[in-house]
């Protein structure tokens, strides 16, 4: 599903160079639930940005399904991004669209017919428990509700993979567990999930594969991992 081959990402400015990711090699199989853990700035977000083509690697190769990600041209990226649903810490909803329109947008960009939108969008919002707030704008929703809209948007296209970048970073414990439960449910239904987090409790509770990142390097990759960082 996802393959990283000796991938490095080096940011350089004014002659100073900083490696956000160094020589990372790993692969993620279909239907896996992978947690990527590490402190802030360890390189978790860089891994995600490389998968969705928001950044290009300085060295190495990133493969997603049949796509050689760093060889895709700007106009080919949308194709890849419709196969991946991404959930961000800051939700990244379109503020001028309602919850319904935000979710529908993901279908619209894929050119799906109106009948699909009428059928699937309410279903997806119902699944995340927001059916009665469909017509609210993001500013009228709480943090947990916004993140649930983002999840509905991420999974509406039945993507091959859901990537969640610190999805609970801005949420209280109640909402945090709600979101994690939804992600586990999505995974049970057959979608690959990658969760980037620095929340120890969550990772230990999930009890699945854990990739630990430290200073841009992958230091541990365990099938039934725990959050162990010094």
């Amino acid at each position: 599903m996802v393959i990283f081959q000796n991938v490095s990402k080096i940011y350089g400015s004014n002659g100073r160079q900083m490696a956000a990711l160094e020589d990372a090699t790993f692969s993620i199989n279909q239907k896996e639930f992978v947690s990527v853990v590490g402190k802030s700035g360890a390189g978790k977000s860089t891994i995600i940005k490389l998968i969705i083509g928001e950044e290009t690697p300085s060295k190495g190769r990133v493969i997603f399904g049949s796509y050689d990600v760093n060889k895709l041209k700007s106009h080919e990226l949308p194709q890849l991004r419709r196969r991946v649903g991404v959930i961000f810490q800051d939700f990244r909803l379109l503020s001028r669209k309602t919850a319904y329109e935000n979710v529908a947008f993901a279908l619209e960009v894929a050119g799906r017919p109106q009948s699909d939108i009428i059928d699937f969008v309410p279903q997806a919002l119902e699944m995340v428990g927001l059916k009665d707030k469909m017509l609210n704008f993001p500013k009228e929703l709480s943090g947990g509700e916004k993140q649930r809209v983002a999840i509905a948007r991420a999974m509406i296209n039945h993507p091959d993979m859901i990537i969640a970048d610190e999805p609970t970073g801005n949420l209280d414990p109640m909402n945090t567990w709600e979101i994690i439960k939804i992600l586990m449910k999505i995974n049970e239904l057959g979608t690959t999930v990658m969760l980037a987090t620095h929340n120890k409790d969550i990772v230990n509770h999930i009890n699945q594969r854990v990739i630990s990142v430290e200073n841009g390097k992958i230091v541990r990759d365990e099938a039934k991992g725990k959050y162990i960082l010094v």
């Binding site: 990226l77 949308p78 991004r81 503020s95 993901a106 960009v109 894929a110 948007r153």
Partner: peptide
């Protein structure tokens, strides 16, 4: 920001 989000959701230019 909205334009960036649309790109990330897979909208074509």
């Amino acid at each position: 920001d909205e334009i960036g989000i649309m790109r990330l959701v897979g909208a074509s230019n």
